[in-house]
Write a protein that binds this DNA or RNA. Structure first.
Lengths: 222, 222
DNA sequence: ATTTAATTTTATGGATCCACAAATATCGAG
DNA sequence: CTCGATATTTGTGGATCCATAAAATTAAAT
């Protein structure tokens, strides 16, 4: 997709995420096109893509509105990621792990081990953790070797807060956040262990549990 | 979406399903537009939607090609449906079933009971079963009450053979197919039982198993 | 003859135009 | 003043036009 359209799509995504376009707000082609300094065409294209992603929905016979996401929807998005990544982990555990994947996973665990050992959790390290976390999840996905699963997860990740990377780091309580990272790291270790041992059921269950870290672990760590 | 675009999308879906556009085939806007008797605009729109659905993929810098689906992909699509519908069943089982849902499920089971009791499995009854089956799955989905899950399943169903309704009915072996329907009916009954009893874990597992009926049950029933 | 450079062809992305449908505003009648 | 009918505005979907970037073909040079 040409530059313009791609950029319109990602700008719209950002705007919706950041609430610049409120849930329920009418999305009209012309105003947005003018605002972005493009013609209606790429905006129309973007609307279709964003509709597929679940960020927009058709409003009656005419036009789109920003879809409103309930708290329930967010939880569901996280559960969906849980079952899908669980499936990926299971599939990876069901066959021998390639040397390449093993190295990548080991490197990943080592990197987060270093991070956790440091003990402090400054603003700067958030980015590092986020990077490592993303790497971890994409290695598993790659190890599952299924385009279908990768696609399903990618689509789900478009939902706000559903992606594995969107652990909202509360900079007000750095110690609680650090605890979360410690736990996530431990879970990563256990998942890798299960995969190496070919324990596919355990790998799946651990990965499903791991998805909940963003929503269910908060209250015990304050 | 206006009639034309919708119809282009569904026509293209059909054509790809039926192999009229082979995997890997270049999809060019103008020829298809002419073939369908429309301008390039709705075709361009359709390509974007079909790309999101995973039926097309970008070919290098320019244009789309039909994505090729491996046997592995089909199996994965079915597993994905399994975990997603399993999640739906679990969520439905986790809360009290509304009177409306109870009635719908009962009616559905009764209808398939009648079908199975007949004992014969003529061509004509395939449509009936397909209808009942679809009803069953959409009641569960509705009962889960999650738009996110519904969306994820809808997207996954675009993959060939991934949808719950695509039990390929082999008219060469009607008795084997009839056995499959019998089993599916039994599984439906067990799932409903688990949901009524609030046994969410069992409901999830049964639904996951139920997804496999299309691929794993064939060899024992010939 | 083969490879490379240049030119032509072709296909896509973006802009604009047009027609139609839906929403809104205006006007008239009760 | 309110309700309804009609007119006007507004916004979307589809068609067409234009510019640009690939692809293909031809030409040229070694």
């Amino acid at each position: 997709m040409s530059q313009v359209n791609q950029s319109v799509i990602s700008q719209l995504r950002r705007f919706i995420r950041d609430g610049a376009f409120q849930p329920g707000a009418k999305m009209q082609e012309l105003p947005i096109a003018e605002q972005f300094g493009v013609s209606r065409t790429p905006v129309r294209m973007a609307f279709r893509v964003l509709e597929q992603e679940g960020l927009l929905e058709r409003s009656g016979k005419k036009g789109f509105v920003v879809r409103s996401i309930s708290q329930e929807d967010v939880v569901c998005g996280i559960e969906i990621r849980g079952v899908l990544e669980g499936l990926a982990a299971r599939r990876m555990a069901e066959k021998p792990v390639t040397e390449q994947h093993r190295q990548q996973l080991n490197a990943c665990l080592q990197d987060s081990e270093v991070l956790v050992r440091k003990g402090d959790f400054t603003e700067a390290l958030i980015a590092d953790w986020s990077d490592i976390n993303q790497r971890f999840h994409s290695i598993i996905l790659d190890g599952a070797g299924s385009r279908a699963i990768a696609d399903a997860i990618a689509r789900n990740n478009h939902l706000p807060f559903a992606s594995a990377d969107s652990i909202i780091m509360d900079t007000q309580h750095p110690d609680a956040e650090f605890r979360k990272v410690e736990i996530a790291h431990l879970q990563h270790q256990l998942i890798v262990q299960a995969i190496y041992e070919g324990d596919s059921v355990r790998a799946e269950m651990l990965m499903r549990e791991h998805a909940y870290i963003g929503i269910k672990y908060g209250q015990f760590l304050g």
